[in-house]
Every structure is written in C-alpha cells, then in structure tokens.
Amino acid sequence: MSPETRFVLLLALFLVVIVLCVKPLGGYIADIMEGRPNFASRLGGRFEALIYRICGIEPGREMAWSEYAIALLLFNILGAFLVYGLLRLQAFLPLNPQKFPGVGGDTAFNTAVSFITNTNWQSYSAESTLGYLAQMAGLAVQNFLSAATGIAVAIALIRGFARHGTKTIGNFWVDLTRCTLYLLLPLSLILALVLAAQGVVQNFAGYKDAATIETLTYQNPKSDAAGHPLVDAAGNPVTEAATTGTQTLPMGPVASQEAIKELGTNGGGFFNANSAHPYENPTAVTGILETFAMFVIAFALTYTFGRMVGDARQGWVLLITMLILFVPLVLLAFQAEQHGNPVFARDSVDQIASAAQAGGNMEGKETRFGIAASALWAAVATGTSTGAVNSAHDSLMPLGGFVPMFLMQLAEVAPGGVGTGIYSILMFAVLGVFIAGLMIGRTPEYLGKKIETLEMKLASVFILTTPFVVLIGTAVAVLTEAGKAGIGNPGAHGFSEILYAFTSAGNNNGSAFGGLTATSVFYNVSIGLTMFIGRYWPIMAALAIAGSLAQKKRVPVTEGTMPTHGPLFVALLLGSILLIGVLTYVPALALGPIVEHLMLPAGH
C-alpha cells in the first residue's frame, strides 16, 4: 500500500470517528449549556449551586450583551494578572523542585496574555523555566478558563440567533461554570487517566539524572554574562567541547495538563518539544487520542448550534463547510512532505518511501510518527486554534508550511478553536447572506433574523481586526532592526517565519516556525499585543451582534427566503471565507511560502 493510500485511509477513518461523535457530544453540550437536567447536572448540580453561592452569582439573572462582554473581559484580565504574578514570583512559591528563578517581565507578560487568550504561544523553554505551580495554577487553569470563555461566547451568539424580542444573551458566569464543570473537567479527567496509563508522566518529583550507556562529547554554545549566545567575527556561534555521562529527565504533572491542552485547543506544551516529546506523547495511541481531542469539541459545537436554533441541518451545513476547507489542505500538506525536496532529488538522494525508510521530507519530524501523522497533526493543530506540534513546522516544505499558515489565516474556521471556530464561521455566514442579499436585491436574512447595516458593521469589525493586527505586526517586524534580529533564515523563509508568528498570534493559535528567535522584548510585547487584540476585539463584536440579533423579531419564512441548509449556502459560505482569506493574505503569502516554493527548482 502506498504512503498516499495509507494517509487517505488514516484521514478518512479519523474524520469518520470525529463525525460519529458530533451528534452525541454536541447534543450533550446543548443540554448542559441550556440547563436541561441530565446525568451530569444530577451528579454535579449541588457543586454547581455551591459555586454560585460562594461567588455570589444569581444563576437566573440574564445579562445584556455589554454586561456579558465586560464580565468576560474583567475575568480574563484578572487571570492575566494572576499568571503574571505566579511567573514573576515562582522562586518564592512551592512546587518548584528545580528552584527556577522568577520569569522575566516581558516573558511573563507575553505568557500571561498568551494563556488567557487560548493562544499558548511560548517564548520560553518550559522545562527549563517553569515550576509545577506556575504550570498548574497558572497555565493549566487558564487552559480550562480560556477554552470555556470561547465556548461561552459561541453559546451567547447562538442564543442571539435562537432568541427573539429580548435584550439578554445569557449569564457569563453560569456559562463559564457549566462549560468547565460538565464538559472540560470530565473529558480532561478521562483523557488524562488514559494518557497516564499510556506512559505520559504525572508526578511532582524533581528532575532525574540518568547515567547514559556511552559518554557523550558535544560542542556546547558559550554565552556572555547576560546569557546571550557568543558569536565569532563571521557570525558563527562560539562553542567549547564538553562531555557528559548523564542525561537529565524532566518530570512533572504532564498528563493532567496534556489533556486540556488538546481538548481546549490550547496547545502549550509542558515541554519545549511539545507533543514530539516522548513524555507528552509516548505511543501511537496517545498520538491518535491527542489528535482526536483537538478536533472533537470544535466539530461537536456545530451540532450544538443546530440543536439550539431548532434546526440540526443548519449545524450540519457548517460542519460540511469546515470539512470541505480542511480536507484539501491536509492532503496538500501530506503531498508536499511525502514528495520531498526537489533539490535532494537533483543530487540523487533517494526520497522514495520503502520498507527501509519513510521517504519524503523527514527533516524536523519525529521518526516515531513519520510523515502521515506529522502532516495530519500540523493541519489539525492549525485548523483548530491548538497550535500544539509533533514536528518542527519550520522544517516543512514551502507548501507544507503554507498549509498551517493558510488554515490559520482563514480565521480559524476549519473547524477552529473550541467556541471560536463556530462563532467565527457564523460571522462569515452573516457576511455571506448579506452579499447574497445584495446580489438578488432582497433584505438578507439568516435563521429568520434580518441582517442589517448594524450587523454588517459589527461583522466587519470582527472579520477585519485579526488581519489588521497580523499584517501590521508583520510589517513593523520586517521594517525594524529589533524585528529582523530574530530571523533565523535569510530571504523568503525569514519573512515566512515572521508572517507565521503574527498569523499564529493574531489568530490565537500558538504554533511557530521555530527558526524565529522570539524571546526579545520586541517580540514578547508585540506578539502579546497582537494576541490580546486578536482575541478580545472580535469577541466584543460577536457579542454585540448576539445582543442585536436577540432583540430582533423572527421573520417568517417565505418563498423568497434563501435556504441556509443546502449546498447553495455551503458554496456561499465557502466563497465568503475564501474570498476574505485569499484577498487579505495572498500578497503576504506570495512573499513567503509561495516564492519559496517557486525558488525550489532553482536549488534555493
């Protein structure tokens, strides 16, 4: 069986399993978020009520959109202060067996914003920077809360479509509590136990020094007193020979963090190598489960949408649209990687898959996973807003690297992050029906709600904010010395590294082309700002639309109403998403991965 056939079978099986989970999980999410009694509320109802009593929350009190938005914003910014404090003060806090010092101010700022925004961009090497308290109480807690925040926004927007003649869209505190208590915590607990059973580390022990079988001699890079790498006159790193007979094995509460990292589409690794590390992702079973966990909630929310608006077909249409966007791009990524590097082919390097080798481009890939599992993971982690990695994205072929970048640039709708995917694609649906309304000369409607000037202004704020911060951030970085100083590779690939970084930050993904050194104050601050604006400004616009739609009366369906549950609407939605994505980003992509691809045959 050829690698291509194996990959198609893997992808098909994977997607079938995901789609089979959509209805039961999506229905369950609708039940818990609408407060319908089920086994979960019977088990956890008393605890939920206790949380409300302790926090002084009136669960029956509904919020207008602006109150909902301010509650969300305030809660998230307080989370940022908490994470910042934990990182800065970790030297004085418990559960830090390696005695790591406090994290630098700019890195703490970047990390705090990164984790409250569900981005999990990591400008630090986790296992050599963070103690266990910072990882658990800081980062893992935000993994739950940022995921719950995204789902809460999605549910509030869906209520906007489902309700009519009301000013309220729900209660943020109740949505946050129910989502965390009944969805994220139970699924994470189950997944963490399975991961731990498979060998993912879960302990509070200090790092272990193991004696290696052979004594290793290596070149150790030298640093100055400030910790900056030393380079010689030619710009090459200054090194000194060193030998070692031991290897340090990092430990920690990994499984519990790994579960929510994937389920909440967060992506921040306990270790720097993320899911390529054998303690995060030790077996084929964990690889498949982690890939599955990234997708399952994001897709299930399409059914939740259909259920809550009273027409399941509306949800299936969104799911089909997401799949039509995702499948060709993941096939392109696989093909680009399996095809290998034409420069190597010219030098007669054998890149054909055989029983003895994976073939293709194996640079930057974990040999345990090979090309198929790496390409699938890269597309899943960027089609969702997870950003976890099991291979080095910087080492992907130009078209292989184009795919993750473009999946993010499509505004993370294939299927997007938990919550963010569904509310983002609904914004494109609003745009799509408006364009269709202009074409046929009728007032646009979606799910019985008239889409008018106000909704279009708000949808424009939603859709344009992210490209604005991504492209402005990229432009500033390539025009300044501070920005150019981080580039690891010259030419088009260096531009790709910067474009990828701001694309990842603005779309709250978190993956990176690792060649970019983004640990400087410039990148920590600029990427921090990009992540914050890219997250909260669109959320505010989405909630404003929810408030506006909830107030509207439902328009009866007539013969002139455009159906939004058929192939025509799928085409319209695809057109809107691709039109915006392509028009916005192709000029920038042409300077990065596209020109890299075109230069390959010439040997560059």
């Binding site: 602006s66 301010i70 708000l458 909260y536 404003a544």
Partner: peptide, 30 residues
C-alpha cells in the same frame, strides 16, 4: 519593569472596555 507590563495590561483592558462602549453606542445610534 513590572509596573510597565502591568500598565500595558490595564491599558489593553481599558481600550477593549472602550470598544464595548463604542459598539454599544453604535447599536443605539438612530
């Protein structure tokens, strides 16, 4: 240094809060 980064966080909150206010005004505009 901490004051600077905490101030940036407060500034980001303030600007986003102002956006909520502006969008609400937009909604209530005739």
């Amino acid at each position: 240094m901490d004051a600077l980064y905490l101030l940036i966080l407060v500034g980001l909150y303030a600007v986003t809060h102002a956006l909520v206010w502006a969008l609400d005004r937009l909604r209530n505009a005739p």
